[in-house]
Structure formats: C-alpha cells, structure tokens
C-alpha cells in the first residue's frame, strides 16, 4: 500500500482534515484513480499512529462529498469522477488553498486590482518556467 499520507498533529489543522486534504490531493493529481482501494480504518490508524475515530471521520466526510464509495464489508474505493466533478474537485482544492492569501490581502488592505494582477503575473511566470523546462 503505497499511499503517501503524512500527518502533523501539531499543525493546528485537525488530523481528519489533513487526511481528507491529502486524499483529495492524490485524486486531483491522479496518484489515486477511480476504483483504487483505500486502506482500512484500522490499518491506517496503526500506520499513522492516530485514533481510528479520526480516520473514520475523514472517510465519512469523503463519502458524503462523493469522493469515495463505501461497499459493505469491503475496502472503500475512489469514485469514478466525471470530467466535470473532477474539475469541481480541483477548483475546490484551489479555493481552499486561496483562503489564507485572500484574508491576508484584505488584512494588508491591498488594492483589489493589484492583488488580481499579482495572481495573473504569478501564473504567467510559472507557465513560462514550466515551458522552459520542457
């Protein structure tokens, strides 16, 4: 089971959130594909050294969000997300990571246009860098 999940209990982010975020990230990045099995609550709990309730909580939320599917008596599997759902998932990831920068922009009272310009610039530079590496 090569699922790469790392928890940092002292980060201030609840462990169940860390698990959800990482599993979703693995799905968005393609590391986990449709039909892939997730480790059992027990196995992941012993492996990570965290309370099994925490794992169950993360799994139930993922189920509620239609990211994984529960099948009685068998491991949870990653759902086959349609193209649209996949894009939604990616946008959601991005939205969540942008919460902190947006809050900071407001706190620092940075002009809205300036902030948007910076975002565009950063995307452009990253794309150029990526092109050069190719």
């Amino acid at each position: 089971m090569g699922l790469l999940i790392v928890v940092d209990p002292s980060s201030g982010v609840p462990v169940y959130r860390q698990l959800m975020d990482q599993i979703k990230f693995h799905i968005a990045s393609g590391l986990l594909g449709p039909g892939d099995e997730l480790p059992s609550t027990r196995a992941l709990s012993s492996e990570l050294g965290v309370n099994p309730m925490t794992i169950s909580k993360a799994y139930s939320y993922l189920e509620k969000e239609n990211v994984v599917e529960r099948r009685p008596g068998r491991p949870l599997i990653v759902r086959d997300l349609t193209g649209e759902a996949m894009t939604d998932q990616r946008m959601k990831q991005l939205r969540e990571s942008l919460t902190a920068p947006v809050r900071m922009a407001l706190q620092l009272e940075i002009d809205r246009e300036e902030a948007l310009k910076l975002f565009r610039e950063m995307i452009d530079t990253s794309e150029e860098d990526a092109d050069e590496r190719r």
């Binding site: 928890v7 209990p9 002292s10 462990v15 050294g49 965290v50 309370n51 309730m53 925490t54």
Partner: peptide, 10 residues
Amino acid sequence: YMTDVERMAE
C-alpha cells in the same frame, strides 16, 4: 507530550 495527545485524543 502534546503530539501524543493530538494523535490519540478525541
């Protein structure tokens, strides 16, 4: 050890 508490406790 807070990390132990954070790993274990609900």
